[in-house]
């Protein structure tokens, strides 16, 4: 049988190197390497990520033009509906302003926005179907921790921080399997539920009792029941109600995220303000 000199010489050396790396990592002696790479690669990755996103955006814009007529017709209908809603809201606005001032006192001072740049999509997708995790250039050293909500420039929810390193953090988008947000449906009943990503493609709303009346198009916002996540951050709109689940205890609702989860270059992490201490 033919000898395998490659395995004998280099194979052992590689095994030794890998074992040494595991040992160094286990002892926490490779942290500097992660930090160094994060700092050195960040500018390059930011540029490459932005370039890739713009290429993808241009391609999508070009293909979208074919459907432009249909989109304009739909938008006209939406504008007509929004005008009607706007008329009602103007009346409510006066009262709301006074209430808002009170609300600001308690709510606004609790959270800060930490703007972060998207450096990459996850190197390997955990869902094996669609990449729905982003790596951002803020980490534990900036005060980012797991479970914090991330929003876009309009303040609409994009997802939650799922893992953190010193200078990097992983953002699980709303449609990611491991992203769960406690939400409520904006209606008179203020129905509570949990929004969870499904297969990296959509968001479903679980644990909504059958007794609660839900309509397609209603707004889904964060409930504020989770620590470090404020209430009333827009998550999405009810897209459809699963008729097959009528006989079960809970309703199954499909939610359409309001934010564009595809072309993201910047995001903002909602940071809770440090509580006052005497130390």
């Amino acid at each position: 049988m033919k000898k395998l000199p490659f395995v004998k010489s280099a194979g052992l050396a590689v095994a030794a190197v890998i074992l040494a790396l595991f040992l160094l990592h286990g002892l926490g002696l490779l942290g500097w390497w992660d930090n160094l790479l994060a700092r050195v690669f960040s500018p390059v990755n930011q540029s490459l990520q932005r370039f890739g996103t713009s290429v993808s955006q241009n391609y999508r814009d070009a293909s979208d033009q074919r459907d432009a007529a249909e989109i304009i017709r739909q938008k006209d209908q939406e504008i007509a509906k929004l005008l009607a809603i706007n008329a009602e809201l103007t009346a409510v606005k006066k009262d709301d302003r006074v209430l808002k001032d009170y609300f600001k006192l308690t709510q606004e001072n609790k959270f800060d926005y930490l703007v972060a740049q998207v450096l990459a999509r996850d190197v390997i997708s955990r869902d094996a179907v669609k990449r729905n995790k982003l790596i951002i250039n803020r980490g534990a050293r900036d005060g980012v921790k797991t479970g914090l909500l991330v929003v876009d420039q309009a303040g609409v929810a994009l997802g939650k921080i799922s893992q953190v390193k010193d200078h990097l953090a992983e953002l699980s988008l709303l449609n990611s399997n491991d992203c769960q947000v406690a939400v409520k449906i904006q209606s008179d009943a203020q129905t509570m539920g949990i929004a969870q990503g499904e297969l990296g493609l959509s968001v479903r709303l679980d644990f909504v009792p059958q007794s609660k009346k839900v309509e397609v198009g209603q707004l889904v916002v964060s409930s504020g029941l989770e620590p470090d996540i404020p209430s009333n951050v827009v998550v999405g709109k009810i897209k459809s109600i699963d008729q097959a689940s009528v006989n079960s205890i809970w309703q199954k609702l499909a939610v359409e995220p309001v934010a564009n989860l595809e072309d993201l270059s910047f995001v903002a992490v909602l940071m809770p303000k440090q509580s006052f201490s005497f130390e």
Partner: peptide, 29 residues
């Protein structure tokens, strides 16, 4: 480099990339 950017357990990337190189080398040999 991938390990520094990956949020998987340390070594998962190095192991598969070296494994692939070794397997290709064995196949070619």
């Amino acid at each position: 480099i991938f390990e520094a950017w990956s949020f998987w357990s340390f070594g998962a990337m190095i192991v598969i990339l070296t494994l692939i190189t070794i397997l290709v080398s064995l196949a070619v040999d």
